[in-house]
Amino acid sequence: MSRRLPVAFAAAATALVVLTGCAGTAPSDAGAPSSSAPSTTPGTTAAAAPSTAAGRVLEVRVSGGQVTGDTGRVPVALGEEVTLTVTSDVADEVHVHGYAREAALAPGTPATVRFPADIPGVFEVELHETGTVLLSLQVG
């Protein structure tokens, strides 16, 4: 329990930082997915965010085909808010399987996907173009 406290603080702090960042990038994100309803997602994210102070903040960097940061199997509690920021040195698209979340990646610019981890199971997060698996979210 005591080990989790600083993490929670850090998470809350980063969530706040990311929240502002997320609001800024939302319109560009909304343009990326072609099939799933684009207009509702940014709105609900912005409205739901302030009520959940804590959440899980994950960061992944892709450089020269190497993945660093929160890679491998990442356990997340069911219902926890997940904020995943991906920075890649090449243009690509990040895809969270099962949750059907996608975000376009511009070289060097961090892209953020934010969602409640409300579906139990193990889900791969991968880059669409290269097929590189960034991490596996283990929810539950």
């Binding site: 399987h97 099962g98 199971g121 193990v122 791969e124 669409h128 097929g131």
Partner: peptide, 13 residues
Amino acid sequence: TVLAHGVGSRTDL
């Protein structure tokens, strides 16, 4: 999409 087995969006806990 390349997944651990055939197709699918998830694997079991």
